[in-house]
Design a protein around this nucleic acid. Structure first.
Lengths: 346, 346
DNA sequence: ACGAATTACTATAACGTTTTACTAATCATT
DNA sequence: AATGATTAGTAAAACGTTATAGTAATTCGT
């Protein structure tokens, strides 16, 4: 019970050396008599001894801690990622130290340094958006310079040799836009994530590809740069109204919800006045009025694959595995927020 | 740059003892000549030395890690709590190891033991619901037996002498029910959180108090026990329909959203056919159609107070502070999901 | 000019484990 | 009866820091 019980106390209580105690506690008891084992276990129970993990880590050079960086735990998507990762880690005897970067690239770097200082066994990074060129380079350098296994999730780092796990964003953008095109829309707004964030850029690429396939000229003024949050929804709404679009592809559900709010305030109906397709398949998207048509990311399997891979790398540090980009299939979930274009605009 | 740089290397490089290096690195350099300081800093830079936090913690007996337990990071409310806590901790040079208990009381205990083993400086606990009597007692015992400062957030532990931070749930339940009563409703369903979870029980208490004040007899069959998630929404909906209630107080927003979904599926309107008031003021509640009337919890200030208090306790471990229950004011946010009772039922 | 105080350091014990290399006793083999 | 293998342990070094108690040289007060 008492806090400061050390292995020495157990040794004293059971009348043998700390070496022996350590051996039986770690299952290396081939050469220890049953009687001694019994005495030691008894002493452990009596004193309520639990090994100090700091001391263990110091000598074994393994902490069984994984560092996790996400932009913002309030965001459903990242909250979900974080939960899946922690749960899988826990089941495999790892714990998670986590940090919110707030989409500040410098924070990514600070957290990674902290993880290095704390000797975490691995790092799982969901990179911040809004990266300055310089910061991004520093990040890549920092990663290259450490031996701690690191994998990225959702967003990739330009010019870093690490394994990444993300949905096929290009394809996701493509199927979102194609869906709208098939419904007859031609003036399709694109409410993007932050520029220079791989996921957003790729979704925009896919959007363009679909336009091209349908021989619709790409009009850059139909893009509106968001931040994957709801903050700029009002400006986005104004912009799209001014441009007279009949549909918009919002690059995540949260921004789509922002548009819902603005449409409602303005007394406009979805999909009557505007068709909307989102991205993520947020839990709320099915409950919204109307239910949101969206591109589903397989968050759970992506996250599990990522953490499983990371642990694999940690535990097989000897055999070199080349960095790989793991790509997951997006899926269009058709609900009620999109409809065929009416010939006369509302 | 190289990983295994230790303080000894710095000592060698700068031509002085490790003691001296340690002193200047920790600002205890009153008695160190400027020249030596300069040489040491230079060596540190050259070698890219960063102290091993495990070793530091082992000797200082401080990890600057705080353990956080929440039921489920996917839940907006807990996700928000977790983010606020981590951000405040980070700003004060603490890091967070966190765990999802999945509302399993045994996990709470396992996590706490892990935190003890890892010598976290403090523990912030959002207790799991669904506690068995026995588990709850074990938890209280475990907490009583450790010297690590611990505070609870949102939910309190029966019979444990720890500081708690939560909204005045009783009052919250009261104002929710009173609002409905003022609108003329008399058959008011109560979609509760899990029984034996303090927050839920107290909200129900408040609901009863309001009924009493309006001289409406309390009917236990108007309660339906939920789990703060959306899972049982369908049964809840059926139950309330069968009972012919004209309004329901859902003890959190997520369950209210579940009701939204069911109402919509059934082609029924809110608040036309049913008035609903939620609890939490989830970010989505303003965006739902209709916007949800709900009882706001001041999540941010609750969480900040809790973590601030925890850190205070950690850093003033000597002066004994008695356990206190900190209570925060709920606030009714009136939106569009409630309306006056029409004399003829829909 | 002498002891006391100050300055600029350092050797070493601790923190709580794991692990390597060793010992001493018993057992089996020829 | 001597040799080798096995059994049942232990002493001590190592992990990378901090912190205590010290030393030797200089400065100061009177």
């Amino acid at each position: 019970m008492h806090m400061g019980v050390t292995i020495k106390d157990v040794a004293r209580e059971s009348g043998c050396s700390v070496t022996t105690v350590s051996f039986v506690l770690n299952g290396k008891d081939k050469n220890i008599s049953n009687e001694t084992i019994r005495r030691i276990r008894q002493a452990v129970d009596k004193l309520g001894y639990r090994p100090n993990r700091l001391a263990v880590s110091l000598v074994t050079k393994k902490t069984r801690i994984i560092g996790l960086i996400i932009p913002d735990n309030c965001n459903q998507f990242f909250g979900n990622v974080s939960k899946v990762i922690e749960t899988y880690a826990w089941a495999n005897n790892y714990n998670i130290i986590y940090g919110n970067s707030g989409n500040d690239g410098l924070r990514d770097i600070e957290y990674i340094n902290m993880f290095i200082d704390r000797r975490t066994d691995g790092i799982m990074l969901v990179k911040s958006s809004a990266p300055q060129q310089e910061t991004e380079e520093k990040l890549a350098q920092l990663i290259a310079g450490t031996e701690i296994p690191l994998v990225t999730l959702d967003r990739t780092i330009a010019g870093a040799n690490v394994s990444s796990f993300s949905v096929d964003n290009r394809k996701g953008g493509y199927i979102a836009a194609r869906h709208l095109l098939e419904l007859g829309h031609r003036k399709i707004g694109c409410y993007t994530g932050p520029r220079n964030v791989s996921s957003a850029d790729e979704r925009t690429e896919g959007y363009k590809a679909a336009l091209a396939e349908y021989r619709v000229a790409f009009d850059p003024s139909l893009l509106f740069e968001g931040d994957y949050q709801m903050g700029r929804a009002h400006e986005a709404f104004l912009h799209f109204r001014a441009k007279g679009v009949t549909a918009v592809f919002a690059q995540n559900d949260v921004m789509a919800f922002g548009l819902y709010r603005e449409m409602q305030k303005a007394g406009l109906s979805i999909p009557g006045h505007l068709s909307i397709v989102g991205f993520d398949d947020n839990v709320m998207s099915d409950i919204m009025q109307p239910p949101l048509t969206t591109v589903r990311q397989p968050i759970e399997s992506m996250s599990v694959s990522a953490i499983r891979h990371l642990i694999l790398r940690i535990e097989n540090a000897d055999e070199p595995m080349p960095a790989q980009a793991f790509c997951f299939e997006p899926e269009l979930i058709e609900r009620k927020s999109t409809t065929v274009l009416k010939s006369e605009r509302a």
